[in-house]
Design a protein around this nucleic acid. Structure first.
Lengths: 256, 256
DNA sequence: CGTGCCAGGTGCCAT
DNA sequence: ATGGCACTTGGCACG
């Protein structure tokens, strides 16, 4: 990792670092007292306060307040930058075309500016809950219903993308939709759209919503739309998969 | 803004800074070569690479790679921390109960550690597109249909939260749902749920989906469900509001 | 490029 | 706490 940092830089030093850092597609970090104006898909205003600003090599901009995971303002990768000093203020503007959006950051004071070159070629491997459920179901469809056979994963309909298209023990087509979290009304409607489309060709089509739990309203709707709900949680699925292949290991227990 | 920064700290210095920073609910910034293991709602693995780590005073954790707006791993506010040195590695663990989740960050090298206390009391004012549309509509319901009168904003039904409940020129009730972006099928279904519930009491109830545009499938569904679609974009709404009160000013044109 | 859909979504506000 | 939902959602995969 190469880079440098300047504490309490002068505005000129700072401007130079900013231009150099962004120009060289490095990681730029700044701590200072700043305000933010944004206009684009929406618009926002944030008066002066002490915050952390980050510009990444791909043109992403992040402005973080002292709390929360989400940045208060940001700009996506590919944004273009302009920086200048005006009346004792350091201004950094990020611009993106399509959709047209601008973020303007005005620094009243800069406590820290750093420019670093990060090397990071590692692959990020994420195991999502839905992926786990689906995998376990494909290996063991009886987790949902005895005699079920998977015909297609990811069947594409006009109404959208079906998670699993199956046939039951009496050869009736079954659409299976997975939700990793408690299923709400939108989940039922989503399944309903698929089943509706298929029932036009064959009124025998069944629809099963598979989730660890379901809201009261959603369950009512499942019944009124002649669909079905089967409980299945991720924990169970992990166990099933562990017994069949290399496990997804949890971290060991956290003590304190 | 008070704080300090150490470049190329020893592991011991680093551990001390981390403990102190998190303990005092300060902003902690670290640059280094690290790996991340996560287990909770999902699970993930990321081998060593050079990244930026941030812990905020509220317990939020962010780990940023050199690209993208989103952190590769994170932990929400309120997380609990544990840090220690083991076999020449600095380990930082963030834990949250409910849902139970753990992130473990293992540093192989630390290039920078900083602890700062940020003061930021400013109010963030965001003007969202949906808000703008709604405001404009309330001032000028004829933007959607002549003779429309707003009875209630945000009417609560079992089926959900209606954006605007209105009456038309012939006293028929009208449910109006706004979408700031191109309306898709879910938007139609959402409106449909509200209208369904109300039509049980009064089959005359109308439902209007208001959006800048609509997908082909969604428009078909609007028709088949006996609902309506009216085009309205945010630009037009801004103009209407500008002519009536203090404008939401865009930043001036961006040159470079 | 648009369209659809998931996400460890996060955040906000309601009951 | 649970539920409903918007978000400058971001990000990905696919036609």
């Amino acid at each position: 990792m190469t880079g440098f940092i300047i504490q309490n830089p002068t505005l000129e030093q700072c401007l130079k670092a900013v231009k150099m850092g962004i120009g060289a597609r490095r990681l730029l970090i700044m701590l200072g007292e700043l305000r933010v104006d944004y206009f684009g898909r929406g618009s926002s205003e944030l008066d002066y306060g002490e915050r952390l600003l980050i510009v990444k090599g791909d043109g992403s901009l992040l402005i973080h307040r002292p709390t929360n995971v989400e940045p208060v303002n940001w700009q996506p990768p590919g944004s273009l930058y302009r920086a200048y000093v005006k009346r004792g203020l350091l201004v950094l503007e990020a611009y993106r075309k399509r959709p047209e959006e601008r973020v303007r950051v005005t620094f009243r004071r800069v406590s820290l500016v750093g420019v670093y070159h990060l090397k990071d070629g590692a692959e990020f491997k994420l195991y999502t809950a839905e992926e786990v459920m689906k995998k376990a179901f494909i290996k063991r469809p009886d987790l949902v219903e005895k005699g079920l056979r998977v015909v297609m994963e990811e069947k594409r309909l006009k109404a959208g993308l079906v998670d699993c298209f199956c046939v039951d023990s009496s050869n009736r087509p079954v659409v299976v939709e997975f939700k990793k979290d408690r299923a709400g009304i939108e989940a039922v409607d989503q399944l309903s759209r698929y089943v509706d489309e298929l029932r036009r060709g064959n009124p025998e089509v069944r629809g099963i919503l598979v989730a660890p739990s379901i809201t009261k309203e959603a369950l009512e709707r499942v019944r009124s739309l002649n669909l079905e709900y089967r409980r299945l949680d991720v924990r169970r699925c992990i166990k099933v998969l562990e017994s069949m292949e290399e496990p997804i290991k949890p971290l060991e227990y956290f003590e304190s």
